[in-house]
């Protein structure tokens, strides 16, 4: 199995998000960077699959030169090759991002392209689907269970995946022939901590750097400004301390109409 996992460098946010004075970006002067938990799980899933069935995992990202750091973080988890589609750091919309990814992977013969279900920052929910359309591949999204069949011994059928996700209190599953595109969600596995040898290998690894075709002027969705939602809360009204607060709490629940 040859698997390519696409990840995105995003700021690590803790207590609050701060917007730059021009309102166009998240202020990252004080923050570290990471990838979405969904994407970390996608890498873990890919590594587990190749550990079982052989093959290798490539990690691809589109972003500024510093995004190589996130590729190395993923190499430390067990991916073997890194690819950086290097940009000048401007935000690429989903249509342009998908075109650049599809252009890069089109002739690389991956069996499976894995993504996180949505990026942590812009949350566009569409790059995997758009990549699949450009490449003419089937696509499943929001996946929390992935099984590879027909690869290696034990199944004579064609190479395929059975992918499941939660839906209305039951599981919805899709059986799709490979090659295919799948986006996964956190919860599909518990990502491992990078091992020391893994980290050393990642540090030394050469990352293939590619200049993608120029980004089109507009994706059709133009950001005007970013803002932190106004908080309606002025701090909690304290009902009391410890068990002594229970009568007040019961009174509140009664007022809210949630008591049976």
């Amino acid at each position: 199995m040859e698997i390519c996992v696409c990840v995105k460098r995003v700021p690590m946010v803790g207590g609050a998000i701060v917007v730059t004075p021009d309102g166009m970006d998240v202020d990252v002067t004080m923050s570290g960077f990471t990838v979405s938990p969904h994407e970390e799980c996608a890498v873990e899933e890919a590594v587990q699959i190749t550990e079982r069935l052989g093959g290798s995992v490539a990690v691809l990202t589109l972003g500024p030169p510093e995004a190589a750091d996130q590729v190395r973080d993923m190499l430390a988890l067990g991916a073997s090759r890194g690819v950086l589609l290097q940009t000048d750091g401007d935000e690429w919309g989903p249509i342009a991002t998908a075109a650049a990814i599809a252009e890069t992977v089109a002739d690389r013969q991956y069996d499976l392209l894995l993504f996180g279900n949505e990026s942590a920052d812009t949350g566009g929910y569409q790059v995997p689907v758009r990549v699949a359309h450009v490449l003419g591949l089937p696509c499943v999204t929001g996946i929390k269970r992935l099984e590879v069949l027909g690869v290696g011994e034990g199944d004579d059928g064609p190479a395929r995946i059975v992918a499941g996700r939660e839906y209305r209190g039951t599981e919805e599953s899709f059986e799709v022939l490979l090659p295919a595109v799948a986006s996964v969600k956190e919860g599909i596995n518990l990502p491992r901590y990078p091992s020391l040898p893994g980290r050393l290998r990642a540090k030394r690894a050469t990352i293939e750097t590619i200049e993608p075709s120029p980004r089109p002027e507009s994706d059709g969705l133009r950001k005007i400004r970013l803002r932190v939602p106004e908080s309606t809360s002025t701090g909690a009204q304290v009902l009391g301390s410890g068990a002594a607060a229970v009568p007040a709490l019961v009174g509140l629940l009664d007022d809210l109409g949630v008591l049976p």
Partner: peptide
């Protein structure tokens, strides 16, 4: 899951932008 997925496919089919959430 369904709404975002279907509208993303619609965006890809039509070549139009899709604004999520």
């Amino acid at each position: 899951d369904h709404g975002n997925e279907v509208l993303a496919h619609l965006g890809a089919i039509t070549g139009l932008p899709m604004a999520a959430n």
